[in-house]
Design a protein around this nucleic acid. Sequence first.
DNA 1: GCCAACGTTGGC
DNA 2: GCCAACGTTGGC
Length: 162
Amino acid sequence: MTRGKPASVGYWLFKTEPSAFSITDLKNRKSRTEHWDGVRNFQARNFMRDDMRLGDLGFFYHSSCSDPAIVGIVEIVRTGYPDFTAFDSKEPHYDPKSTPQRPLWYMVDVHLKRELREPITLRELKAQPALADMRLLSRGNRLSVMPVNLQEWEYILGMDHR
DNA sequence: GCCAACGTTGGC
DNA sequence: GCCAACGTTGGC
């Protein structure tokens, strides 16, 4: 947006535990659109609140399961806005420090573009020298929402053509 | 279930 | 502001 440069698409990775919310769950939604709520980490929040733009794309990643893998591609269809699930004491991620007047946590809405032909497993990702610096693979990285750079994005899309 | 790698909290 | 204790994440 600055200095007349064309807006560039940003790329992201969204982690989810399939036992809680899987790509099948998202596929079965009539709208195939979902609030990415419940993120309670400041760095991940900042990415959603400050950096994601309409039309940005993201990998949908299954974590904490028998075969962690990228399984689909989503598009950002609504940029950061207050995560209202934080306001509700009945919600699992309720946080009394966040109020409608002073929201602490933010979310975006994502829309499922497509499933990958086959999941690209964590194991396969780790085997690619081209992805050695990928944030997902960095030691001890536990962010549930993180950026992916263009080179990584394109390389991984290429892996989908098997 | 284990454990490394964090992030958060709270006493000082 | 420091830092130890604690809780969580997530691969294995």
